[in-house]
Design a protein around this nucleic acid. Structure first.
Lengths: 162, 162
DNA sequence: CCGTGGTTGTTGAACTGTCAACCAAACTGT
DNA sequence: ACAGTTTGGTTGACAGTTCAACAACCACGG
């Protein structure tokens, strides 16, 4: 779309549009490449990988479903489906929560841990190859800062990432 | 594979990890928000919107399926499905290509044009609200530059247009 | 010509994510 | 104590994506 001075819409400048497209296109291709390489090398999707990462960072490798969903910015139902599939693969297990009988605790199994440990080096290398090592440290830091600002703004600053 | 001084994995520093997570999390939430708002306000998915944008930028509002797929970084089959659905909605039409009997030209209909014109202001505003106006011009420019570098690296510098 | 190989685009099955409906348990106020 | 509301999580139907197989066509070298 080209800018149109006859409307009240505040269009993007040509420069902003180029930058926006670079961002969208670059991010889409980057995430697609990472997804593809992780799947190829380890059989995990990035979503499954992220689930394992989050669980691995808690003392008892356990999280409530809702916390996991919030952390990953996934819908509850999406997480339910994902966890069910991962449970079938033996990567995680679900146990009812004692303190809150509505709740469900999701725990990483030993197999899940081993799968994560085996997958991590390859994935980290992918992130390096396609993102971190392609940019200067300053560029990469700017990327992180900017997107953190975006995230805080989107979540009303109320999101704690743990 | 990069040449490494040892067989050990080169992990990300704590700082890099934070930045990477901010980037991934922020981008995921941003794209999800834009998708949701576009769908809510116009009934279009971002993929359909992008198809219409690309078509609108050619002189005759027409592109070959393969060019469209490359432009959007979508698989051929994905594009075929998307275009079939859009054709059912009357947004685009497909006609066999004269120069190359294998090919198919995808053209925007008048309805498609009107839908795009009606959708664009709302979408641009969303992009402003959640991204452009949240950052300084320098931050936003840095984002675009960095992701353009990433994109060029991923596509071997062989990707044109945009 | 013919055959081989590469390109273009489509198809259908399997998989993944979305959405709305739903149940059960926990809180809330009277 | 108890109806009404909120929260945690699941389910099933539906929509969109992926993947492999396929058909049709071009291009090029015998």
């Amino acid at each position: 779309m080209t800018s149109d001075t006859s409307t009240e819409v505040q269009w993007l400048t040509a420069e902003q549009q180029t930058q926006w497209r670079s961002f969208r296109g670059g991010a889409a291709r980057l995430f697609a490449a990472l997804e593809h390489e992780l799947e190829r090398d380890t059989g995990l999707s990035t979503h499954e990988y992220e689930v394992l990462v989050r669980l691995s960072e808690t003392p008892d490798r356990t999280l409530r479903m809702a916390q996991l969903a919030d952390n990953l910015a996934h819908s509850r139902s999406r997480l339910t489906h994902t966890i069910r599939r991962m449970e079938e693969q033996g990567l995680v297990s679900r146990v009812p929560c004692v303190e809150d009988a509505r709740g469900v605790n999701c725990t990483m199994t030993e197999k899940g841990w081993q799968v994560l440990v085996a997958a991590a080096p390859s994935h980290v290398q992918s992130v390096r190859d396609h993102l971190v090592d392609v940019l200067t440290p300053e560029q990469f830091a700017a990327l992180g800062d900017a997107m953190e600002t975006v995230r805080l703004h989107l979540t009303g600053g109320a999101c704690h990432v743990e």
